[in-house]
Each structure stands twice: as structure tokens, then as C-alpha cells.
Nucleic acid binder design. Sequence first.
DNA 1: CTGCAGGCCCTTA
DNA 2: TAAGGGCCTGCA
Length: 248
Amino acid sequence: MRIQADHFDMIQIAESGQCFRWSRQEDGSWSIPFRDKCLIAEQKGDNLIFECTEEEFDSYWKKYFDMETDYGMMEKTGLSLKDPFLERALHFGSGIRILRQDFWETLISFLISQNNNIPRIRHSIEKLCDREIFPSPGEILMKDLTDCRLGYREKYLREASKWMIEYENGNQKSELSGIMGVGPKVEACVRLYGLHELNFCPMDTWMKKIVAEDYHEIMPDWMHSKYAGYYQQVCFYYKRMAQAGGKK
DNA sequence: CTGCAGGCCCTTA
DNA sequence: TAAGGGCCTGCA
């Protein structure tokens, strides 16, 4: 099926650092796994082509791509803050969306992401998966994780798996932050990307860099706003691309 | 060789 | 309660 959409750029979404398993095919299309399905998708301008039926898109992928959220409104709200850096970032990364990813996969992915780099994060996650399917907590506990090259993070994944099994059994007394290896940054990522709590703004090295270099060490107002997570994502992408393009 | 990558844990003062 | 060292690993 084929649709037209604003605020939707597959390259920007794939490179915005929120997801680690989108992969580009030789023909330029994207392979997009989510839970037990995998979608082949392609973009030409604002034309989006999805290899699935309209029913399947409406009942499954539409939510994943967060098609119900009004990005135009969030952009407008951001622009009204009259913040020059945010303004540039919103224009630069206008195709970014906050995907509604699987909570469990997000938790594990961002546990792996700490003190780590993107290629290695992707490699670890790929090794963790069995034929494109992300493992359940029980499967992670059973699995030999040597090939995943997790280093000291391996015990964090096991602790998280035990926590998740308790959580699924209805025992919700423990908080996310109670999991070994989940600090403020990882928790914010899980809440933003895995629970779609758009007010959470992960403070990573890039955000600190932005606050230092672009805001003279003074936290901008938007970091405390309702859509802080979305603005963070856009600024993160803008800053990272500016540096990647700026140095050669 | 050292530094570093979207941090966090643990110890110390 | 704030600061700082150590940590798996791979790549530049």
C-alpha cells in the first residue's frame, strides 16, 4: 500500500538513534522489524510505500509509526518558544518521529547502549535476536550470550530479564530505576521510546554538549516541556549530523 | 599505544 | 551528596 505523509523521513528516523534494528536493503528499501512481524518499506519524497495490506497497516504498523500524533502541532509549539537552536533543529529534522517501539526490546537495547557506540550496539542486538525475532526475558536467561559481546552489561540483561518476568506476572512493585544498570539516561530512553512518554528528555553526552556549546551551560526551557523528548530527539539528530558533516 | 562511545556502580571524603 | 575511578569491547 502507498500513502503520503508529512513529518516522516525514514532515513532521519533510522539515524536518529532511537531504533537499532532498521536495516537498509540494497535497493534502498528498509526492513523494519517490530515484535513478530517485519515490514519492507520504501520512501520517495513524501510518498511512502509499504509492503503490506491496508488492513495490516491500520491494525499494526500505523500505531508503531505513531501516525496518530500531531507532529505539526508539536513543531509549531516548539517554534513558538523562539529558541534559535531548536528552530534550526526542527527544520533540519522535520521527518523525525518517535516510534512506539516494544517496551522490552527498548529496555534491553538501551541497557546495551550505555558507554557504547552505535555499530557495536547494533551488532550486540543482532546477535541477541534469533532470525529477526527479539528474544523474550526467558529466552535471554537461557541463552549463551558470549557472542553478543556485551561485556559488563551481560549481568544487566539477566537482571532485567528477571525483573521483566516478575513484571509480566503482575508484580509491579519494582520501578524501572530499580534494575541494575538502569540509571537516569537509560530510564528516560525507555520511557520515551518504549512507553512514548514524550516529556522524558534523555540527558546524554550529546545533550550535555548542546547545553555547553549552544546554550552556554544554561538548560533551555524546552527540556522541561511536554514534548521535551521529541525536541531532544530532533536536537540530538541535528547536532550529530552537523558534526558528522562538519568534520571530514 | 591512548582515547572514546547516547552511563552506571561503587567507594570515598 | 558530590566527585571520581573502573568497567567490556572494538575501532580510530
